[in-house]
Simulated scan of single mutants.
Amino acid sequence: MQTPSSANSVPWLSEHEDAAWRSFLALSRGMERAIDRQLQRDSELSSSEYHVLVPLSESKDGSMASRELLRHLDWERSRLSHMLSRMEKRGMVCRKPSTQDARGLIVEITDHGRQVINAAAPWHLAMVREAFMDQLSSDELKTLVSVAGRVIPQLEKMNLV
């Protein structure tokens, strides 16, 4: 990414661009807060715990290498380690040494973790549908997917994700 030579060389956002950007930020932050509150209220899960349980519950055998889970979540190693410790204490996951990588760990969802995610998912999906999906037309959903399909690769190209 090129660095502007001075703040004056950066073109300011137009009124329309500024409104779009601020709306996107408000929507993104608002949805994150709503998801956090809904999960806590209906399932006593944090959104971070939910994000860990989803890929584990969707994997063939309910487990993933911790490195794979780390890449999937795009978290720092210490954040995942702390989260897994908390979730182990709550009986939702367990960690086991990898049979294929002497330094690696396998993270596995427990029966209790499956019960928790299975109970949380319908409430979570109902909120996402009511608050987000049902507010958008089919064309708007296609546009959103198209926008993400252009912006995310650009962020990757800029080494920002």
Rank of each mutant, 00 (worst) to 15 (best):
K96E: 15
M87R: 06
D134R: 07
S85C: 12
D74N: 01
T110N: 02
D42V: 00
L69F: 15
T110Q: 01
E140P: 05
M1D: 15
P4R: 03
D74W: 04
T110G: 03
N159C: 05
A120K: 04
I152C: 11
E44F: 02
D36L: 04
L73E: 08
I117Q: 00
T99F: 03
H82V: 05
S138G: 12
A131F: 08
G113D: 04
S98N: 09
M92P: 06
L73K: 14
S28A: 14
L53M: 08
P153R: 13
W123F: 15
N118G: 15
A148L: 12
D74H: 10
V10I: 13
E88R: 11
R67E: 00
A65K: 11
E76A: 10
S137D: 07
L84A: 13
G113C: 00
R129Y: 15
K60H: 15
H72C: 11
F132A: 10
V145R: 09
L39I: 03
V107K: 00
L84E: 04
S138E: 13
F24H: 07
E156D: 08
S57A: 07
Q154T: 15
K157P: 05
A121F: 01
R71G: 10
V93A: 08
P11F: 08
D61H: 11
E17L: 05
E44C: 04
S98K: 03
H16L: 11
A102L: 11
D134Q: 12
S46F: 07
L39E: 01
T3R: 06
M133E: 14
A121P: 02
P55Y: 01
R95I: 00
G62N: 05
P122V: 01
M31N: 09
S14I: 02
R114C: 07
D18Y: 02
E15M: 02
S5C: 03
E44S: 12
S138H: 13
V52Q: 01
M31G: 02
L53E: 05
V128F: 05
I152K: 05
W21T: 04
V128M: 14
